[in-house]
Design a protein around this nucleic acid. Structure first.
Lengths: 229, 229
DNA sequence: TTTCGGTTGTTGCTTAAGCAACGAACTAAG
DNA sequence: CTTAGTTCGTTGCTTAAGCAACAACCGAAA
């Protein structure tokens, strides 16, 4: 287990918790580490779950089935990524299935133990609870930002908003992203071809400069203006 | 304060907490009750907040300013509605302004006191923490359902999905809603005229039956089929 | 009763962007 | 080097739905 401490400590759930604190918590929670073969299911659509999972090794996908049976990719999870956190706190059924894309390993923390402070009142336990709320809250806001994009009427507005947002997040006007074109099109909910078309138009108009997955904002005022409509 | 106990106890935050438990918690938290005149601000866009607010009396609106300065209505809050809960848990700035639409009264609970169990380890305090996480999680899932609608490509698909979803939520195939047409159009992110047009088409095709704000699903199989594309 | 604000339905016109198909560039494996 | 898989750009065609404008309806207030 020790080999995974760095991964755990890098997650938002254990942010700010010392190594000693982590060990106390593991002592207390006794989380289960499970190994999955490629194609096995970590969390099944339509079921409740009361465990918070963290991927330790390998890759997993969050997928959803459309009414006509097709599979839609929702998220991609790697080491350090957390799943089941929002679900555990609610009494709802999982909206997604988490599927092992490669052989992988995950650790499961029982939600009830996390949310109930134990007698010893570890300082780190309290930090963990705050982190849990913060983790869920941040997921909410991330989703909220996406909704703000999705409700914009034109692709141009979506792109302007997204570019400004991303620049603000990264703290610079020249930045690159990990998403590829198809991924960005998915996120913005548009056609990949339309995305290419619009990005080129914007480059021609002198609003931005493109190079592969790098973006440079040339005229933020105009971008802000066009983000509105 | 006693007069507002029923409102507090009806909220998701105090769900399952006894009157005695509520009084203990109030004793412990000493939340502030504030009165606002119409037009005053309960929570300002762009600022952090570390209080969880509950409307006790009157009406307030959650609004957002678009880049070009226009005001967009996000939510409408009445007695028993909670705000600032997701925000408090994060270290982010508020994405909305909460504005008193009428004279109103709200109570503010300090987040830090809620998230830190105190020495006395009230049973109800623990319930409250669970409720807080549940409240935030449910807001997340509500948003998630909306995203699922927004990413559908056609209005027909959005409507089919929404109708099936709403019927499932209300547990019957004939139901009515509180939203008016404009509100529903906003939620689905489409034009009100297009919404009317499409609903009528669907009625003509024998998929549904309409009467004002009542909907009757006639052919759920066809609806499910068309929800996909 | 009349009037008025608010909510719906309706309908042409216009357009942003979906769709489909193909070609170019790049990478990795054989 | 060859081949095969992936990603990205490009471009006509087509259409869903946005936009604007008006008419019908309804309930509340005057």
């Amino acid at each position: 287990m020790e080999e995974y401490y760095p991964i755990l400590m890098s997650t938002s759930l254990f942010r700010g918790i010392s190594l000693q604190g982590l060990e106390e918590l593991l002592q207390c929670f006794r989380p289960q580490v499970k190994t999955f073969h490629k194609g096995e299911i970590l969390l099944l659509f339509g079921y409740e779950s009361h465990d918070i999972g963290i991927i330790l090794d390998g890759q997993a996908d969050g997928i959803k089935n459309t009414p006509d049976g097709a599979e839609v990719l929702i998220t991609h999870l790697g080491p350090g990524d957390i799943f089941g956190d929002v679900l555990s706190g609610s009494s709802l059924k999982s909206p997604v299935t988490i599927l092992a894309r490669t052989d992988c390993k995950a650790v499961f923390f029982p939600y009830q133990k996390i949310i109930h402070p134990c007698h010893s009142l570890h300082y780190s336990h309290n930090q963990l609870m705050q982190n849990l709320v913060a983790t869920i809250s941040e997921k909410y806001f991330a989703l909220n930002r996406r909704v703000d994009l999705l409700i914009l009427k034109t692709l141009r507005a979506k792109l302007c908003t997204w570019l400004l947002d991303e620049a603000a997040r990264q703290g610079k006007d020249t930045f690159s992203i990990t998403l590829n074109r198809a991924g960005l099109a998915d996120y913005l909910n548009c056609e990949r071809s339309a995305l290419s078309r619009e990005l080129n138009r914007m480059q021609n108009e002198g609003l931005i400069e493109l190079y592969k997955s790098s973006f440079k904002l040339l005229d933020k005022a105009a971008l802000a203006n066009q983000a509105a409509h």
